[in-house]
């Protein structure tokens, strides 16, 4: 890629930041060039962000309708999934799945809940009663 081919597509996900890309300059040697984003990359990022946003929107509705516990809402909010949350908390994925159900969540000890609090960096009250930001 030549220096003048380095894309400057002002990607939304960069929020005004610029990234360093290596490209070939006029003398045929490499140099670092700042890029405001590549449209191709931006599309891929937005797809991923959109998927996460949709997941969170669904989880919010599910929580409000009482279909899932607050945990079901917090997992996508903090951009976790079962696997990463299992690693972070030490619970097994099947345990977390159970904790997502309202019935099991309500019976969990504070000690177990605190594990989630530590990972999300929130208080016990916040974990039990999420304040939904719109």
């Amino acid at each position: 890629m030549k220096k003048e081919e380095v894309p400057q597509d002002s990607c939304k996900s960069y929020s005004g930041h610029k990234k360093l890309i290596y490209a070939v300059g006029d003398e045929g040697h490499y140099e670092g060039v700042k890029s405001s984003g590549w449209e191709v990359e931006g599309f891929a990022t937005e797809m991923a962000v959109k998927a996460l946003d949709e997941q969170l929107a669904q989880a919010t509705i599910d929580y409000q309708q009482g279909k899932v516990s607050p945990l079901g809402y917090y997992i996508p909010l903090f951009r976790f999934d079962l696997m990463s949350l299992a690693h972070a908390t030490g619970f097994f994925q099947w345990q977390i799945k159970r904790h997502i159900t309202v019935k099991v969540f309500n019976k969990l000890s504070d000690k177990k809940l605190m594990k989630y609090c530590a990972v999300f960096n929130i208080s016990l009250e916040e974990l039990k009663k999420p304040v939904i930001k719109s």
Binding site: S13, Y14, S15, H17, V49, R79, F80, S84, A88
Partner: peptide, 8 residues
């Protein structure tokens, strides 16, 4: 970090 770049 910008919001869209914050992942676990």
């Amino acid at each position: 970090f910008p919001e869209d770049m914050r992942f676990q």
